[in-house]
Design a protein around this nucleic acid. Structure first.
Length: 411
RNA sequence: GGCGGGGUGGCUGAGCGGUCGAAAGCGGCGGUCUUGAAAACCGUUGGGCGUUCACGCGCCUCAUGAGUUCGAAUCUCAUCCCCGCCGCCA
């Protein structure tokens, strides 16, 4: 949710910024609905005031109350409609992008900030994670499909150990940076989905358990953001930094035919996610810091990567700015997203009711999120560190947390 | 799954249908006292919306929605949620 008062005060600036997200029209529609609502509010307030009588009313007062209440009833119906229309319009207005988010509407418009690490060269025919993992017994996709349908995977043996080592490495390192480790619920109520902004926008990608009115989270961002839902913290309690581990579930509606090979894009995966509540003036720096942590983790995996600054028109509704880390996938010969960190400023917090108090005033916090680790990173590790015999070397950072030094080749 | 209790401000917890946005305590903030702090004492202190340069003023809000009433935190109904006991269970 945007800062409505700020938007009213500087509509032209807001319109220009929102135009970069293609939302100038939505903004104008909101302003109009807001105006209509603003006109109605004092009228209804005035009528309501007239109905308040202290103590026992006289017969004359009772008589005049009748006409006032009739008028009030009409006006309240109008107001109710105006409130609904305004809310609908408001929900369509995204968070205006930060000035440093580049222009453009697609992932091609993202600006590459840097490339780190050297792309490996191989003196042999290289394989992707499927051709490596299936023969070696690290992955079983066929049986997973038989069990659950397409886009599911069994991860087994050395690979399973390496994957858990990855999550543990991320949790341990981030805990050392001051994040509170969290193992979060993955089934949540509808309110949590609305509060974090996944409903109604992304509802098609969320699995629902109809019988119990619960929903499976697509990311632990939901569970972590909800930690301070409807709370008012003291200023000195900020920042609050969490690193959550959870399984994530996504229907991947709208991804038909995309990334269907292997476990690059599956319905169920695990993720370690960072989530920060902070003071407004801290969020920009915090965002850079989250990116730095993501780069630290990626570098520890010894995989080549690049950092991109996502184009304004390609940002989600809530982000003002987003950095992705893309890891090198040698068989695809391209960089693919493995992490993403967004600054959602007060947009998410406002809807969430996550506020803090300073100098007697209550204001929304800022919230940020960022991926710490998913198995996708491990796919890049496996592919970049593959050996001719089909095995794959694991970086020391993972071995330290229980990964085998070598994911064994097929017997 | 069975039976019972309950949802009030940052927290705990009172609340006769009107003078209740709501006692009291805790916490927070300001002050007195003190070299400073603590203690003690005094004052102040929910959130949201609108309006105002501001002091302020108006409206909404006692889980949610509907109803009774001139008037509801208080009465009625429905829904949601929480807690306790028993059963089952990783």
């Amino acid at each position: 949710m945007i800062d409505v008062k700020a938007a009213r005060n500087a509509p032209d600036e807001w319109r220009v910024a929102l135009e970069r997200k293609g939302a100038a029209g939505a903004f104008d529609a909101f302003l109009e609905a807001d105006r209509a609502w603003l006109d109605l509010v004092p009228e209804v307030d005035e009528l309501r005031g007239q109905t308040k009588i202290k103590g026992k009313p006289t017969p004359e007062q009772l008589e005049s109350l009748k006409t006032v209440k009739e008028e009030l009833q009409r006006r309240e119906a109008e107001l109710e409609a105006a409130v609904a229309a305004r809310q609908l319009a408001l929900d369509e207005v995204p968070n205006p992008p930060d000035a440093s988010a580049p222009d453009g509407d697609t992932d091609d418009d993202a600006v590459e900030l840097r490339r780190v690490g050297e792309q490996p060269t191989f003196p042999f025919e290289i394989r992707d994670h499927v051709d490596l993992g299936v023969p070696a017994g690290w992955l079983d996709l066929e049986r997973a499909t038989r069990l659950s349908g397409s886009r599911f995977a069994y991860r087994m043996g050395d690979f399973a150990l390496a994957e858990l080592a990855l999550y543990r490495m991320a949790l341990t390192r981030l805990a050392a940076h001051g994040f509170t480790p969290v193992i979060a619920p993955v089934l949540v109520r509808e309110e949590a989905m609305y509060g974090t902004g996944f409903f109604p926008t992304d509802a098609v990608n969320i699995y629902g358990i109809e019988r119990d009115d619960l929903y499976l989270v697509g990311t632990s961002e939901v569970s972590l953001a909800a930690l301070h839902m409807d709370e008012i913290l003291d200023e000195d309690e900020l920042p609050r930094r969490y690193v959550g581990y959870s399984t994530c579930f996504r229907r991947e509606a709208g991804a038909a035919g995309k990334d269907t090979r292997g476990m690059f894009r599956v319905h169920q995966f695990d993720k370690v996610e960072m989530f920060v509540f902070c003071r407004p003036e801290e969020s920009a720096d915090t965002h850079e810091q989250l990116l730095a942590y993501e780069e630290e983790l990626t570098a520890a995996l010894k995989i080549p990567y690049r950092v991109v600054n996502i184009a304004a028109g390609d940002l989600g509704a809530s982000a003002v700015k987003k950095y992705d880390i893309e890891a090198w996938f040698p068989q695809q010969e391209r960089y693919r997203e493995i992490t993403s960190t967004s600054n959602t400023t007060a947009f998410q917090a406002r809807r969430l009711g996550a506020r803090f108090r300073r100098d007697k005033k209550v204001e929304p916090m800022h919230t940020l999120n960022g991926t710490a680790a998913t198995a996708r990173a491990l796919l890049s590790v496996v592919e970049n560190h593959q050996q001719e015999d089909g095995s794959a070397r694991m970086p020391a950072a993972l071995v330290e947390f229980g990964a085998p030094e070598l994911l064994r080749a097929p017997a």
